[in-house]
Design a protein around this nucleic acid. Structure first.
Lengths: 116, 116
DNA sequence: TTTCTAGTTCGAGTTTAATCGAACTACTTG
DNA sequence: CAAGTAGTTCGATTAAACTCGAACTAGAAA
């Protein structure tokens, strides 16, 4: 028996994995790209930021790909505020699941920009 | 002016990057695979191991690829002892370059095997 | 010297990822 | 409502990675 919805509902759903479902390999992969490392650094130091503040000269579609990768891995949470998407680093979730990992990565990334 | 070598020299050279040349993104990428994470765990807990002790059921050629990835990233050092290649985790180099990173990864990996 | 063992290299097939223009959606503002 | 703004999605292209059999190399052992 199928239930049908009589109105045309359009919900923009961004799926964030739960803290306990974060997978280490996925998180490390999301961190293993210079562009994404830079995003993590910016979000860690400057707090929540809209996409526009994070697209440093690159095409929007490229950045959208990186955001998706990070969201799927559980690195970012996105809150939609009207027109803009506010990104924030899921620091507490990451820290509870993988203690010390993000601080170590941030420290390592800060010690040099020759990340690649 | 070219110098020529009159004998046929064959040297097996394994190039290990120097500690100060390790690149964070490369290291994270080398860590971002479940098979390689497992290798890191085994080497961390059991010390130096030959390839044969690390190829858990997988084809040698596949494992060779993973070893190469890890060596190139600076995760492993290989010492050739006669017939066998002894692998060891470059813990001290990694720790001096990226303090806390490997311990955090090991702790995270140990907390669950659902790494992927 | 033949054989065994340990591991690499090669090559092919497949998968996954990165890049980016163009079209699209949805909110906001005039 | 029209126009602008913020960001996603699509589709194509290219580049990297992963996997693995087969052939190869070199040391060890018989």
């Amino acid at each position: 028996m199928l239930r049908q919805c009589s109105y045309d509902v359009k919900v923009k759903v961004v799926i964030h994995p739960q803290a306990e479902d974060l997978k280490l390999a996925r998180v490390l992969h999301a961190l293993s790209d210079p562009v994404r490392l830079q995003l993590v650094r910016m979000l860690a130091t400057e707090g929540d930021l809209p996409c526009s503040a994070l697209c440093l000269g690159r095409p929007k579609s490229s950045m959208s790909h990186h955001f998706k990768t990070m969201i799927d891995a559980g690195l970012l949470r996105v809150e939609i505020a009207g027109n803009t998407h506010v990104n924030n680093l899921r620091f507490d979730d990451l820290e509870s699941r993988f203690p010390g990992l993000i601080p170590a990565v941030l420290k390592a990334a800060e010690s040099t920009d020759r990340t690649r």
